[in-house]
Deep mutational scan, measured.
Amino acid sequence: KMTIRVKGKELARRIAKEMKDRNLKVEIHEHGDEVILEIE
């Protein structure tokens, strides 16, 4: 399990899509400006 902190929703969406393309499970937690992606 891996956690990534990202500034900006646009970048977070791009990373999430990339991870889904690799068949990984992604959970997205938004905290205002910061987005936390949990990847399994």
Results as ranks from 00 to 15, higher is better:
residue 1 K to D: 03
residue 1 K to R: 11
residue 1 K to G: 09
residue 1 K to W: 10
residue 1 K to M: 09
residue 1 K to Y: 08
residue 1 K to V: 08
residue 1 K to N: 06
residue 1 K to T: 08
residue 1 K to P: 08
residue 1 K to E: 03
residue 1 K to H: 10
residue 1 K to S: 07
residue 1 K to Q: 06
residue 2 M to T: 11
residue 2 M to C: 15
residue 2 M to W: 15
residue 2 M to D: 03
residue 2 M to A: 07
residue 2 M to N: 04
residue 2 M to I: 14
residue 2 M to F: 13
residue 3 T to N: 04
residue 3 T to E: 05
residue 3 T to V: 14
residue 3 T to A: 04
residue 3 T to I: 14
residue 3 T to M: 11
residue 3 T to Q: 08
residue 3 T to F: 14
residue 3 T to P: 02
residue 3 T to S: 07
residue 4 I to T: 01
residue 4 I to A: 01
residue 4 I to M: 07
residue 4 I to Y: 05
residue 4 I to D: 01
residue 4 I to L: 10
residue 4 I to K: 02
residue 4 I to E: 01
residue 4 I to C: 11
residue 4 I to N: 02
residue 4 I to F: 06
residue 4 I to W: 05
residue 5 R to M: 09
residue 5 R to W: 09
residue 5 R to H: 10
residue 5 R to Q: 05
residue 5 R to E: 03
residue 5 R to N: 04
residue 5 R to F: 10
residue 5 R to G: 03
residue 5 R to P: 03
residue 5 R to I: 12
residue 5 R to K: 11
residue 5 R to V: 13
residue 5 R to L: 10
residue 6 V to Q: 01
residue 6 V to D: 02
residue 6 V to K: 02
residue 6 V to R: 01
residue 6 V to I: 12
residue 6 V to G: 01
residue 6 V to W: 02
residue 7 K to E: 06
residue 7 K to Y: 12
residue 7 K to D: 05
residue 7 K to P: 04
residue 7 K to G: 04
residue 7 K to M: 09
residue 7 K to Q: 12
residue 8 G to T: 13
residue 8 G to A: 05
residue 8 G to S: 15
residue 8 G to C: 15
residue 8 G to D: 15
residue 8 G to H: 09
residue 8 G to N: 15
residue 8 G to W: 08
residue 9 K to T: 10
residue 9 K to M: 15
residue 9 K to W: 15
residue 9 K to H: 11
residue 9 K to R: 13
residue 9 K to A: 10
residue 9 K to D: 04
residue 9 K to Y: 11
residue 9 K to I: 15
residue 9 K to C: 13
residue 10 E to V: 06
residue 10 E to D: 12
residue 10 E to I: 05
residue 10 E to Q: 08
residue 10 E to P: 03
residue 10 E to T: 07
residue 10 E to R: 09
residue 11 L to H: 06
residue 11 L to V: 09
residue 11 L to N: 08
residue 11 L to D: 06
residue 11 L to Q: 07
residue 11 L to F: 06
residue 11 L to P: 03
residue 11 L to T: 08
residue 11 L to R: 09
residue 12 A to L: 03
residue 12 A to C: 08
residue 12 A to R: 00
residue 12 A to S: 02
residue 12 A to Y: 01
residue 12 A to W: 03
residue 12 A to Q: 00
residue 12 A to T: 01
residue 12 A to P: 00
residue 12 A to K: 01
residue 12 A to I: 02
residue 12 A to E: 00
residue 13 R to P: 00
residue 13 R to S: 12
residue 13 R to N: 13
residue 13 R to G: 08
residue 13 R to L: 15
residue 13 R to W: 13
residue 13 R to A: 14
residue 13 R to V: 11
residue 13 R to E: 14
residue 14 R to L: 11
residue 14 R to Q: 12
residue 14 R to D: 04
residue 14 R to G: 04
residue 14 R to E: 08
residue 14 R to I: 10
residue 14 R to F: 06
residue 14 R to A: 11
residue 14 R to M: 11
residue 15 I to F: 04
residue 15 I to D: 00
residue 15 I to L: 11
residue 15 I to G: 00
residue 15 I to C: 05
residue 15 I to M: 08
residue 15 I to V: 06
residue 15 I to H: 01
residue 16 A to I: 13
residue 16 A to S: 04
residue 16 A to E: 09
residue 16 A to N: 01
residue 16 A to K: 03
residue 16 A to W: 09
residue 16 A to P: 00
residue 16 A to F: 09
residue 16 A to V: 12
residue 16 A to Q: 04
residue 17 K to M: 09
residue 17 K to H: 06
residue 17 K to F: 04
residue 17 K to R: 10
residue 17 K to T: 07
residue 17 K to W: 05
residue 17 K to L: 08
residue 17 K to I: 06
residue 17 K to S: 07
residue 18 E to Q: 13
residue 18 E to C: 13
residue 18 E to L: 15
residue 18 E to V: 13
residue 18 E to N: 10
residue 18 E to P: 00
residue 18 E to T: 12
residue 18 E to D: 08
residue 18 E to S: 12
residue 19 M to A: 08
residue 19 M to Y: 12
residue 19 M to I: 05
residue 19 M to C: 10
residue 19 M to Q: 02
residue 19 M to R: 01
residue 19 M to G: 01
residue 19 M to D: 00
residue 19 M to F: 14
residue 20 K to F: 09
residue 20 K to Q: 13
residue 20 K to G: 08
residue 20 K to D: 03
residue 20 K to W: 09
residue 20 K to R: 15
residue 20 K to N: 10
residue 20 K to I: 13
residue 21 D to T: 08
residue 21 D to G: 10
residue 21 D to S: 12
residue 21 D to W: 06
residue 21 D to F: 07
residue 21 D to H: 09
residue 21 D to N: 12
residue 21 D to L: 12
residue 22 R to C: 14
residue 22 R to E: 03
residue 22 R to G: 03
residue 22 R to L: 10
residue 22 R to W: 07
residue 22 R to Q: 09
residue 22 R to H: 08
residue 22 R to T: 03
residue 22 R to K: 10
residue 22 R to M: 11
residue 22 R to P: 01
residue 23 N to F: 09
residue 23 N to V: 03
residue 23 N to E: 05
residue 23 N to Y: 08
residue 23 N to Q: 08
residue 23 N to I: 03
residue 23 N to T: 03
residue 23 N to L: 07
residue 23 N to P: 00
residue 23 N to K: 09
residue 24 L to W: 14
residue 24 L to D: 00
residue 24 L to Q: 04
residue 24 L to A: 04
residue 24 L to M: 12
residue 24 L to V: 07
residue 24 L to C: 12
residue 25 K to Q: 10
residue 25 K to G: 04
residue 25 K to P: 03
residue 25 K to T: 10
residue 25 K to N: 10
residue 25 K to H: 12
residue 25 K to E: 06
residue 25 K to S: 10
residue 25 K to M: 10
residue 25 K to I: 11
residue 25 K to W: 10
residue 26 V to D: 00
residue 26 V to H: 02
residue 26 V to Q: 00
residue 26 V to K: 01
residue 26 V to M: 03
residue 26 V to T: 03
residue 26 V to E: 00
residue 26 V to I: 07
residue 26 V to F: 07
residue 27 E to A: 13
residue 27 E to W: 14
residue 27 E to T: 15
residue 27 E to Q: 13
residue 27 E to Y: 14
residue 27 E to I: 15
residue 27 E to D: 09
residue 28 I to S: 04
residue 28 I to K: 02
residue 28 I to L: 10
residue 28 I to C: 06
residue 28 I to W: 15
residue 28 I to H: 03
residue 28 I to A: 04
residue 28 I to R: 03
residue 28 I to Y: 07
residue 28 I to D: 00
residue 28 I to M: 12
residue 28 I to V: 10
residue 28 I to F: 08
residue 29 H to L: 11
residue 29 H to W: 13
residue 29 H to T: 13
residue 29 H to P: 01
residue 29 H to I: 14
residue 29 H to E: 05
residue 29 H to M: 10
residue 29 H to D: 03
residue 29 H to K: 11
residue 29 H to S: 09
residue 29 H to R: 12
residue 29 H to A: 05
residue 30 E to A: 09
residue 30 E to M: 12
residue 30 E to Q: 10
residue 30 E to C: 11
residue 30 E to H: 11
residue 30 E to G: 06
residue 30 E to I: 14
residue 30 E to W: 13
residue 30 E to F: 14
residue 30 E to L: 12
residue 30 E to D: 11
residue 30 E to P: 04
residue 31 H to K: 10
residue 31 H to R: 11
residue 31 H to N: 12
residue 31 H to W: 13
residue 31 H to C: 13
residue 31 H to M: 13
residue 31 H to F: 14
residue 31 H to A: 11
residue 32 G to K: 05
residue 32 G to P: 05
residue 32 G to F: 07
residue 32 G to A: 07
residue 32 G to E: 09
residue 32 G to R: 05
residue 32 G to W: 06
residue 32 G to T: 03
residue 33 D to Y: 05
residue 33 D to V: 06
residue 33 D to M: 05
residue 33 D to S: 07
residue 33 D to A: 05
residue 33 D to I: 05
residue 33 D to K: 05
residue 34 E to V: 14
residue 34 E to G: 04
residue 34 E to N: 07
residue 34 E to Q: 09
residue 34 E to Y: 15
residue 34 E to L: 13
residue 34 E to D: 11
residue 35 V to F: 15
residue 35 V to Y: 15
residue 35 V to T: 09
residue 35 V to S: 05
residue 35 V to K: 01
residue 35 V to I: 15
residue 35 V to L: 11
residue 35 V to R: 02
residue 35 V to A: 04
residue 35 V to P: 01
residue 35 V to W: 15
residue 36 I to F: 10
residue 36 I to Q: 03
residue 36 I to W: 15
residue 36 I to V: 10
residue 36 I to D: 03
residue 36 I to M: 05
residue 36 I to E: 04
residue 36 I to N: 02
residue 36 I to S: 03
residue 37 L to G: 00
residue 37 L to W: 01
residue 37 L to K: 00
residue 37 L to I: 13
residue 37 L to P: 00
residue 37 L to S: 01
residue 37 L to Y: 02
residue 37 L to F: 06
residue 37 L to C: 01
residue 37 L to N: 00
residue 38 E to F: 14
residue 38 E to S: 11
residue 38 E to I: 15
residue 38 E to L: 14
residue 38 E to T: 14
residue 38 E to N: 07
residue 38 E to C: 13
residue 38 E to H: 12
residue 38 E to A: 07
residue 38 E to Q: 10
residue 38 E to M: 14
residue 38 E to K: 10
residue 39 I to C: 04
residue 39 I to A: 03
residue 39 I to S: 00
residue 39 I to N: 01
residue 39 I to Q: 01
residue 39 I to M: 04
residue 39 I to W: 10
residue 39 I to T: 02
residue 40 E to M: 13
residue 40 E to P: 03
residue 40 E to A: 11
residue 40 E to S: 15
residue 40 E to K: 09
residue 40 E to C: 08
residue 40 E to G: 11
